[in-house]
């Protein structure tokens, strides 16, 4: 199999089969919190993509070049958290300067990427699966794209829900959770694809 084919299969696996939200259940907080509008959710997805890609790269370097030589493998979680926190701070400053509208639209969820388990999850998975640098970065980027796909789809569903007749007791959060569950079931259909 050619290298390109491998990358493509890896892409399908990250985005559809092992979708972070629907099959790994990581990053559910922003998934439910910022999926009100397609536009905002897409921006959130992009912010997460940026953070996850860079975090994968940084964490790979720190893990392989610092932690392993010093025999400090067990420190990976703490070191990764440090990297992610610093990165998110950086993204926040960057957005505040360059895109105030996006900054205020993302609101509290931007600093919350720090504690988004999807970001820590992808860096830990990179280590556990023994990916090389290229695949670690690709895993970060593709998984984040899967996250973006999920959150944008969800936002689309929720925009539709706004204008549909829903029983009073199901309005708001309950119907959102039900739709999320149904989407997760749909994504289960991709398992076995790769």
């Amino acid at each position: 199999m050619s290298a390109n084919m491998n990358v493509f299969l890896f892409f399908v696996s990250c985005v559809l089969t092992n979708n972070f939200i629907f099959s790994r259940f990581l990053g559910c907080c922003p998934f439910l919190g910022v999926s009100n509008k397609v536009e905002t959710s897409f921006s959130m997805g992009m912010a997460v993509t940026f953070v996850m890609t860079i975090a994968s790269l940084c964490c790979y370097m720190i893990y392989n070049w610092l932690l392993i030589p010093l025999g400090l493998k067990f420190m990976n979680t703490i070191a990764f958290i440090l990297v992610i926190a610093a990165l998110v701070q950086f993204v926040e400053m960057f957005l505040k300067k360059n895109s105030p509208t996006l900054y205020s639209a993302l609101g509290i969820y931007l600093p919350l990427i720090t504690t988004n388990c999807a970001v820590l999850g992808v860096t830990t998975l990179n280590v556990n699966n023994g990916y090389n640098m290229l695949y670690a970065v690709l895993n970060g980027a593709f998984s984040a794209l899967g996250f973006t796909l999920a959150i944008v789809l969800m936002a689309g569903v929720r925009e539709r829900l706004e204008s549909s007749k829903i029983p009073e007791c199901m309005k708001g959060f309950p119907i959102t959770l039900v739709s999320a569950g149904l989407m997760a079931v749909a994504f289960m259909g991709f398992s076995g694809l790769v």
């Binding site: 610092l66 932690l67 070191a79 990297v83 610093a86 950086f90 400053m93 960057f94």
Partner: peptide, 20 residues
């Protein structure tokens, strides 16, 4: 190591805070 990492990130963020 963690001290050094923290210091390095702190320095970077300070720089970014000035810049942005």
């Amino acid at each position: 190591l963690l001290g050094a990492l923290g210091l390095a990130f702190g320095g970077l963020l300070t720089f970014a805070a000035r810049k942005f």
